[in-house]
Amino acid sequence: MEHHLMWNWPMIVYLFLAGLGAGALAVSGIVVLWDPAGEFRHRAALVARLGAFIGPLPVIIGTILLIYELGRPFRALNLFTSNFWFMFFNPSPMNWGSWFILFFCVFATVYALTFLPWKALLRGERGERLEARAERMRSPMAVICVPLAIAMAIYTAILLAAIPARPLWHTPVLWLLFTVSAISTGLSAIILVQRFMFRKPGAVRGAIRREDPAFRVSEYYLVSMKVLLIIAELVVIGLFIMFAHMTINSANFAVQVLLPGGELATTFWLGVILVGLLMPAFIEGFYLLRTAVLGHEFEWPYVINVSAPIAILFGGLMLRYVIVVGGQITGPIGI
């Protein structure tokens, strides 16, 4: 069946990227905040740094994409010119969202700047001064960025959930689903970039034994986080479907598109659940368990190392796809 979609790929990609950026930033910020002593400086710095750099980028790209899609880029300024206080009187999630994006982009960029190797960039005293200041600012910035990132992730869901006329979106579970997915995709992006940057698996081997003090920031740690997030996401998806199914109204009708026989069932079950969640969970879980239960050294082939996060990213995109499209092709029921 052909559908007339009002929000299509640009919106889907935007929601995905915004979640991803927010997730990456949140992970980075949390790592920074959990490492006040700077004990595992090197490894923590790597994850935190990558997260900080990744954070604003997708959001900026996604926003530009969306504005470009609107056709009249400067018109988008109306979001802000209609006046700041307007958003408190007109609590449109999109209005709030645009301010979030604005703040997010500004703060995330400043936060990312605190990770730049200023000393290497600007030789001399100025570089040193800046580096010191950057390091001082990092934690306070993280304090701002983590809630902002989480708000961003939640906002991408609230944008949709605020609409009763789209029963698939209008569910109290959606924010949880999108937030979990945001963090999980953000984390995957960090891992993926890390993989590309440190091609040789051997480079990190040895640092990831159980007894290794670098454990918390190790591969193992990140991967277990990811698997846990996947499990959480599966639970939330279960909740999402159950919630809709138990509601005897349009929500129940709407969720049928995702259930077997529904129009988006294949994409949902194959793309989101199988490829995006179960597969990475099983593969990564396998290696994790080998370490956790049998005490083996945590190591895995490079292919899997790269493909698991890609699968998760793909699943994240597909999740936005089925939700955005599914919401539009099901609607209010009743005359």
């Binding site: 009002m6 929000w7 018109r75 109306n78 999109m94 609409i163 006329a165």
Partner: peptide, 18 residues
């Protein structure tokens, strides 16, 4: 003033916006 975001179109339970 409109920016063409179509948020309103989703919000209308009658699908009358485009």
């Amino acid at each position: 003033v409109c920016i063409g975001c179509l948020y309103c179109a989703h919000a209308c339970p009658y699908g009358v916006r485009f």
